[in-house]
Amino acid sequence: MADLDLSSIRLPDGRPAGRRLTAQLRAAGFSYDSRRRRISCTGRRDARLPYRYLGADDRAGANYTGQPAVHSYYTENH
């Protein structure tokens, strides 16, 4: 189990990865609680998602808890 604010995961054009990433996480066997912003899974997983990390922007501002946050940018591998 881990905290995961999907609004901080961005595509190259700056849009949140949101629903598409949530669907891919669920298809890979994870659960996502959007109200608590928590991802979890039971048992061992060898999950591979079709994304490649591009970098981060530390000027994102505060997250939902009020703490400083970053936006992480990913591109989808096709």
Rank of each mutant, 00 (worst) to 15 (best):
A47V: 04
S40Y: 04
T22F: 11
H71S: 09
D46Q: 07
D58R: 12
F30P: 03
G66L: 13
S31K: 11
P16H: 06
Y51F: 15
A17C: 04
E76Y: 08
L25M: 12
G66D: 11
D58M: 11
A69T: 13
S34D: 15
V70G: 00
S31T: 15
S31D: 15
P68M: 09
F30D: 02
A62G: 06
L6R: 04
R48P: 03
R59V: 05
G43E: 04
G29Q: 13
R36E: 14
L21V: 10
A47K: 05
R52P: 00
R10P: 01
A47L: 01
G61L: 13
D33Y: 03
H71Y: 13
S7A: 12
H71K: 12
A17I: 06
D13E: 14
R35M: 03
R44M: 00
D57P: 05
Y64L: 08
D33V: 04
G18R: 13
R20P: 01
Y51A: 00
N63H: 06
R35K: 07
R38D: 03
R35D: 11
E76W: 08
L21D: 01
R44Y: 00
R52E: 15
Y51K: 01
D33P: 05
R20K: 15
A17N: 09
R26W: 00
Y32A: 03
T75F: 02
G55V: 07
A47S: 07
R45E: 02
